[in-house]
Design a protein around this nucleic acid. Sequence first.
DNA 1: TCTCGTGGGTTGGAAAATCAAACCCTTCAG
DNA 2: CTGAAGGGTTTGATTTTCCAACCCACGAGA
Lengths: 156, 156
Amino acid sequence: MAASRDPRPCSIADALALVGEKYSLLVLREVCLGNGRFDQLVRNIGAPRDILATRLRRLVDAGILTKRVYSERPQRFEYRPTPAGLELEPVLLTLMAWGDRHLRQDDERPMVLEHSCGHELTPVVACAACGGTVVHEDLTSHPQTPGWTVKGPTAA
Amino acid sequence: MAASRDPRPCSIADALALVGEKYSLLVLREVCLGNGRFDQLVRNIGAPRDILATRLRRLVDAGILTKRVYSERPQRFEYRPTPAGLELEPVLLTLMAWGDRHLRQDDERPMVLEHSCGHELTPVVACAACGGTVVHEDLTSHPQTPGWTVKGPTAA
DNA sequence: TCTCGTGGGTTGGAAAATCAAACCCTTCAG
DNA sequence: CTGAAGGGTTTGATTTTCCAACCCACGAGA
């Protein structure tokens, strides 16, 4: 679990430390689809049951999922996304869009999402301030951590 | 590396099979920042050198990175994102935004991105068709694979 | 009652991936 | 000819993953 010394301080790395383990984002996919029961997760994800149990504990601890009882007697549970968990959906959407574009030359997407506007969803990342679609060339990085430049640590 | 039998066919899963291993997205972060040399990557990511070498091979094979010679004699290399690799940047942006919002109650973001419009970038996912910001409630899922519903395989 | 099926896990041991440190090779600099 | 930088590979110990088997509570059917 540990990484070596002094990596770049970064919210991407911190986010991945929570949801970057194998299957975690697929768990989120399923619970966002409404499939929060343990063996739905096992079947739809194809993960080993013990790993899944471990991931679920972590995601609940992290405040990304909640574990709800949907039946006493017999006691049965269901995992659902918290608001924080739902806010990870954009990550899933951008990943799916990338996979659809680059991993299948044929036009056979495994799932299509429909937006309430009536169109098929093609997710794009936009700038909240100006509304424009974000492309790499329009971005400039400003590290905020003393000692770190874009290139790396200064005077390490 | 193998998952059990018959998981949901899904571009998220397929994308994660390529870039979901530990450190892969951090490699992409660094090359997008322009830091493509082997020991910049080692230092800035904090990954073991052997794992990094493995990841780099995989990402090059997948067409996400290219390995360029930036100096003959002494021979030196640099990894850079391909167009396909650059198109993964939205995944990094949405992950970073989530981490900034949920992983630091204090307001100390490790990095700020500036958009060419002059504002700090706050990335949002929008619908390419209508331009509206996408929220979970506005989405409907339509699996395209025979035998699969949102809930799972039919008549398995 | 006895047994089966479902839901939600836990346990055990073998196989694979990760880790840190050490090593290797080439080239340039002193 | 010694050292340092860049770009890795090798080694052996430590962790994770994997899969199958098992466990438990409950309800249904025979």
